[in-house]
Amino acid sequence: MAASIDLTLDCTDARLLAEFWKTALGYVDEPPPPPFRTREEWLAQFDLPEDDSVDDGAWLCDPGGVGPRLSILKVPEPKTAKNRLHIDIRLPVNGGAEDRWARIKVEAERLVRAGGMVVAEVDEHHIVMADPEGNEFCVAAASASV
């Protein structure tokens, strides 16, 4: 059996990024692990500093159970350089190159309204974007083999 992965984004505002990524991916808040009823109960088991709060993190999941879980955690230091790993949002698209590019552009516009920003358009193939805290990601069409 293959290992699974979770992705973690460092941030300064976990709530802001959680809302953006829920919009971008269609993810939902992940429930706390059993037997805990709330994230507050779950966090209470850890010896966290007094100034840590449940708002310092967000845990998201694909409601269909297919995509990786996404943890968004507040850290004290700011982002200082380009991500070494980034997320690609792959869109299902039917049709030719014009249809794919039009769908990618519409999705990028939707994500700009949600707080993202366009960094670059690459040869009518994909759009490089950044989330509200500057984490880079790409919007592209899913390949036929995906």
Results as ranks from 00 to 15, higher is better:
Met1Ala: 14
Met1Pro: 06
Leu9Ile: 02
Leu9Phe: 04
Asp10Cys: 08
Thr12Ala: 11
Arg15Thr: 03
Arg15Met: 04
Leu17Gly: 00
Leu17Phe: 10
Ala18Met: 05
Phe20Trp: 06
Phe20His: 04
Trp21Phe: 03
Lys22Arg: 09
Thr23Cys: 04
Ala24Glu: 14
Tyr27Asn: 00
Asp29Tyr: 11
Pro31Cys: 14
Pro31His: 08
Pro31Arg: 15
Pro32Ser: 12
Pro33Leu: 15
Pro33Asp: 11
Pro35Lys: 05
Phe36Thr: 11
Arg37Ser: 15
Arg39Phe: 15
Glu40Gly: 14
Trp42Ile: 09
Leu43Asn: 06
Ala44Trp: 12
Phe46Ile: 13
Pro49Ser: 12
Pro49Gln: 12
Pro49Tyr: 04
Asp52Gln: 10
Asp52Leu: 12
Ser53Met: 04
Val54Ala: 15
Gly57Asn: 03
Ala58Ile: 00
Ala58Pro: 00
Leu60Ala: 10
Val66Phe: 01
Arg69Gln: 11
Ser71Pro: 02
Lys74Asn: 01
Val75Phe: 07
Val75Leu: 04
Val75Ile: 12
Glu77His: 04
Lys79Pro: 12
Ala81Met: 02
Asn83Val: 06
Leu91Cys: 06
Asn94Pro: 08
Asn94Ala: 02
Ala97Gln: 07
Asp99Met: 13
Lys105Pro: 01
Arg110Gln: 15
Arg110Lys: 12
Arg113Pro: 07
Arg113Cys: 01
Ala114Leu: 03
Met117Pro: 01
Val119Met: 10
Glu121Arg: 07
Glu121Gly: 13
Val122Lys: 09
His125Cys: 09
His126Gln: 05
Ala130Trp: 02
Asp131Tyr: 05
Pro132Tyr: 14
Glu136Leu: 04
Ala140Asn: 02
Ser143His: 00
Ala144Pro: 03
Ser145Val: 11
